[in-house]
Amino acid sequence: MELTEYRKPIPKPTPETRDFWEGCKRGELRLQRCTVCGHVFFPPRGHCPKCAARSVESFTASGRAKLYSYIINHRPAPGFEQEAPYAIAVVQLEEGPRMMTNIVGCPQTPEALQLDMPLEVTFEPITDEISLPKFRPVDAR
C-alpha cells in the first residue's frame, strides 16, 4: 500500500493538538474558541492567546477560507520531488485564524492562484492516524 511510502514530514499530535488531528481524520476542521472573550484561534492550546483564560472549547469550522498569500516552490523539500513546482499557501479561515496549507485541485500557477479566491477544506489521509487539511477552489468540485 502506498501509504507506507509516504516520505514527507508527518505531524505527531501532542495532548493539546490531538482533538484537531482527530477532527481531521473524521473530515472536520476543528478550531478553538475562548469561552470568556470569544476569541477564535489556531493552532490549538490550553488557554486563550488573547485574554489568557484557561477555559476554551473546540468546534467544527465551516471549512471556508480565502487565499491570503503563497509562494510557488521550485526547490522541493525531501519527499516533494514529484510535485515541484508546488504552492505553499497561507489561507484565511472564515472564522478568523490563518493556517499554512497546500492548494489542491488547480494548477500551481500564478494565473490559477489568485489572492483572496474562495477555498474550501478537503482532507488528505497520509497515515491511519493523520489526515492533512488542504484547500481547493470552491468551484473545483
Binding site: 508527518i10 505531524p11 505527531k12 493538538t17 509562494i71 516552490n73 523539500a77 505553499i88 496549507t101 497546500n102
Partner: peptide, 29 residues
C-alpha cells in the same frame, strides 16, 4: 523540526524547504 513541534505539525507537512520557502510567503500579499 521535530514532528511534535508546532512547525512540525502545522507547517512542515506542506513542503517548505528552508527560509526561501517561508520567509517569502508574505511577499505576494
Amino acid at each position: 523540526f521535530a514532528p511534535q513541534s508546532l512547525q512540525g505539525q502545522f507547517e512542515a507537512p506542506y513542503g517548505p524547504f528552508g527560509p526561501p520557502t517561508l520567509f517569502t510567503l508574505p511577499v505576494l500579499r
